[in-house]
Design a protein around this nucleic acid. Structure first.
Length: 809
DNA sequence: AGCACGCCGACT
DNA sequence: GTCGGCGTGCTC
């Protein structure tokens, strides 16, 4: 009986989200392996698609005629056993297509491009041959697809049997190569060739000697030229005479500034740990030794030396002949941290981040896949690095929301890390100065093991934080982003030739209403969550329960007319600053000034070289920066984030303020922090001012408990969209009915409500938020809803599901 | 996704 | 009568 293979095809729809069975042709029987890419026929006609082998020799219940695999795209599997089962789990967990989660784990280059080509097989009209086919005998269908006239013409020609549609699955995965030189003859034969040379053919004579010295080897031509001192032309002559051949040699693309460091010399030595660090490291290293899949929460204030604990844990894993994976939020994946790891572990390190080109990314991936790199540092998607035998997984800044992917598959890197930790029997270390409430709560329950670093390595106290109330400022001086106090301090730093960092909090740029007199933010009477301004309907809406009210003219709290929506931009602030302190040199860092590749690093380098006095930026400057000459940090608007319709808004504000405060006074000079706010008494700001994580945690937990939010409840968000608002709304109403019928009474269903941006890309969005403690009906029910509402075209309601959403907006 | 099949309106 | 519109259903 013929060998069978189960294949997941690259057709991301609900209907095709399952393996299809194919026959393995005899010629491929010895080569097929799980996790390889294949080209398979799929559907009517001659359509070909890329697929992945996810099973071999499993019985099939399919009664129809099986088709055969056309070709294997790989000699070695591109997904190992671990990642294969992870992909299945991921698809299930996040309600994504299996094929989508497979692609999420792989570099883009492994996604083959499938093109349709129209080939002329019989004489066609001259005019058509010229106009449509440009005189050639084939045509890329994609180039004419949008022209209905040409499309129908081609279809007509197809019916007449004059043209044929063909499919080409083209692999984009190309290794970069350089020219290599290999002697073609034996030592004696080369010697023989020497005798027939002209007496004055010195170069050829030298080439023969050189070739004799590299018998049986392949040398890059660039190196060969350097060593032998010969020119390219001489090597070409050698080829002509049959002395040598040129062969491609695979080389890795080297990202700029990431040239491999040699392993052998002056790798940075481990630093000496203090008692607290040592205690934490001991626990982690013990777990590595014992191959225990324990989760640790490493909670340490800024400057407490978490990174050194990470590095020594990685060293331990390597010592045990295992590999290590370290995740860092993209935003803090700065050369500073990367270099620290690379200087410790040299060429064992592979780095994955968004700045790499597709080719560079593919090469780093291959280095890992081949076992040439044992330490991986990267952002979110690096959690899928093809490491085997992982000894430890580290997530730095585990509370960062960027660990959650906000498009399908909507996975959280922390959850994937825990899965891989379990699979590999390896500990997972979650590190943060301000752990997420979820993680900290688990640590309190003993689900995670809490490791605390309470003291800073240099024993320096954290900089004092002053909160400035902007309400009287505005009253006395009118519109300004700068309080008198902040201006005075900035001028003072300028005089002392010290630097300052100013952060403009861009979170919450969306439109909410706040009173400039009393700081009151307009909230929903039912939900205790800010209302969002909807300009289309001229109303304030609650995105949780759907409550709606007119835009207020007076503050409902103090009656002031000074209630308006809130927000400002870095550019505006920069202009104001130029007017107030014209002599200050300012570097502005936001999405606009850092869009170009390498600009981020360049601006930071300039600031580090003191080419500016003030670094003005958005959240992107809150993390990881370490400039010894910075003695003042100012937060222009601490409270914008508080106005967001998001139950995590306080947590995020607390995190942000804690982070940015750590940027001041890193070295010997004393630092200080100014926080400007309209809500000086808000607990997130108060606790941040006192560096009191513990206090914040307790207070916030109480609020979450009271309002039934995570970590007391799990959440899922369902979204439906349609061009017709009524249809989207109706679909959601029906879904709600289904949910209410089948879910447990303790499960809370909120909505449906229109989303903050109710209309996007000409579609209307509605959402339902489900809060539950445990409900075994939920998962199967959501799967069922997805199946039933499977959209067959843009005329159908599209449903998407977001487990553990980061935002509810 | 892409393609075929199938059932209705305006044309060589 | 047929060409082609897009609703429906299937792809091992």
């Amino acid at each position: 009986m013929a060998q069978l293979a189960q294949v997941i095809v690259d057709v991301p729809t609900m209907q095709t989200n399952r393996p299809y069975t194919y026959q393995v042709p005899t010629r491929l029987e010895n080569q097929v392996q799980l996790g390889m890419r294949v080209v398979v026929p799929f559907g009517n006609g001659k359509r070909q698609v890329q697929g992945f082998i996810v099973g071999l020799d499993q019985p099939t219940r399919y009664n129809g005629q099986l088709k055969a695999i056309d070709a294997l795209m790989d000699l070695q599997p591109v997904i190992g056993d671990e990642l294969l089962s992870l992909s299945k789990w991921l698809a299930d967990r996040t309600y994504a297509f299996w094929i989508s989660s497979i692609y999420t784990m792989l570099p883009n280059m492994l996604k083959a491009k499938s093109t349709r080509v129209v080939k002329i097989i019989d004489e066609v009209d001259e005019q058509i041959a010229f106009d449509v086919f440009h005189g050639k005998d084939e045509l890329d269908f994609a180039t004419v697809q949008s022209n209905p006239q040409i499309v129908s013409l081609l279809l007509k020609l197809q019916r007449q049997g004059k043209v044929r549609f063909e499919y080409v699955v083209a692999d984009k995965a190309k290794a970069k190569t350089t020219v290599g030189i290999r002697p073609q003859l034996s030592f004696e034969e080369l010697e023989e060739a020497r005798t027939s040379l002209h007496a004055n053919a010195h170069a050829q004579n030298r080439l023969l000697s050189y070739l004799q010295s590299i018998i049986g080897k392949t040398v890059k031509q660039v190196d060969a030229e350097k060593i032998s001192g010969l020119k390219a032309a001489t090597f070409n002559t050698g080829v002509q005479k049959g002395w040598l051949t040129k062969v491609p040699i695979e080389v890795y693309r080297t990202p700029l500034g990431q040239e491999p460091l040699p392993d052998d010399h002056h790798l940075a030595k481990p630093l000496t740990l203090n008692d607290e660090q040592q205690a934490a490291a001991n626990e982690i290293e013990q777990a590595i030794d014992d191959s225990r899949s324990r989760v640790f929460l490493l909670e340490g204030v800024t400057g407490s030396g978490k990174t050194e604990v990470y590095l020594q844990s990685i060293a331990k894993a390597l010592q045990n002949h295992k590999t290590a994976l370290m995740l860092v939020p993209e935003i803090s994946l700065t050369p500073q941290i990367v270099n620290r790891v690379r200087h410790r572990f040299g060429s064992k390190v592979a780095v994955l981040h968004s700045g790499l080109s597709a080719g560079e990314r593919f090469d780093e991936w291959r280095r890992i896949n081949r076992g040439e790199a044992q330490v991986v540092v990267g952002a979110r998607s690096a959690i899928f690095a093809p490491l085997t035998n992982i000894g430890v997984i580290i997530l730095d800044e585990e509370h960062e929301s960027s660990y959650k992917q906000d498009e399908a598959p909507r996975y959280h890197a922390r959850e994937v890390a825990k899965w891989r930790g379990k699979y590999n029997n390896a500990p997972v270390v979650l590190g943060s100065a301000t752990p997420s409430l979820e993680s900290r709560a688990r640590a309190m329950k003993g689900v995670y093991q809490l490791l605390q670093l309470k003291h800073r390595v240099n024993k320096r106290p954290l900089p004092p934080i002053k909160v400035v109330d902007m309400r009287p400022e505005i009253k006395e001086r009118g519109e300004s982003n700068f309080s008198r106090e902040l201006l005075t301090k900035l001028t003072d730093r300028l005089a002392k030739n010290e630097q300052s960092i100013l952060m403009l909090n861009r979170r919450g740029f969306s439109s909410f209403m706040m009173c400039r007199d009393c700081g009151e933010v307009l909230k929903c009477p039912n939900c205790d969550i800010s209302l969002t301004l909807h300009m289309d309907s001229h109303t304030m809406k609650c995105h949780y329960c759907g409550h709606e009210e007119p835009i207020p003219r007076f503050c409902p709290h103090c009656g002031s007319r000074e209630i308006r929506y809130y927000g400002t931009g870095t550019e505006k602030v920069e202009r104001e600053l130029a007017g107030l302190i014209p002599q200050a040199r300012v570097i502005r860092m936001d999405v606009d000034t850092t869009r170009r590749k390498g600009m981020h690093e360049k601006l930071l380098r300039q600031f580090g070289q003191h080419k500016a006095d003030i670094l003005l930026g958005t959240q992107m400057i809150a993390k990881g920066l370490d400039f010894p000459n910075v003695t003042l940090v100012g937060v222009l608007n601490a409270d914008t984030g508080l106005g967001l319709p998001d139950f995590r808004s306080s947590e995020r504000t607390f995190d942000l303020l804690s982070q940015v405060s750590g940027r001041a006074g890193r070295a010997d000079k004393k630092g200080e922090v100014i926080i400007q706010t309209y809500n000086p008494d808000h607990y997130a700001i108060r606790f941040a001012q006192r560096n009191d994580y513990e206090g914040f945690f307790k207070r916030e937990m109480a609020l979450r408990h009271q309002a039934s939010y995570p970590p007391y409840y799990f959440t899922v968000r369902l979204m439906a969209s349609h061009e017709d608002e009524a249809i989207a709304a109706r679909a959601m109403a029906q879904i709600k009915e289904q949910l209410t019928k089948s879910l447990m009474p303790s499960t809370i269903i909120l909505g449906p409500t229109p989303r903050a941006i109710a209309r996007m890309k000409r579609r209307y969005y509605y959402q339902i938020v489900i809060k539950y403690k445990q409900d075994q009906h939920l998962h199967p029910l959501l799967q069922k809803i997805l199946q039933e509402t499977q959209s067959k075209g843009k005329n159908d309601v599209q449903i998407s599901i977001d487990p553990d959403p980061q935002y509810f907006m």
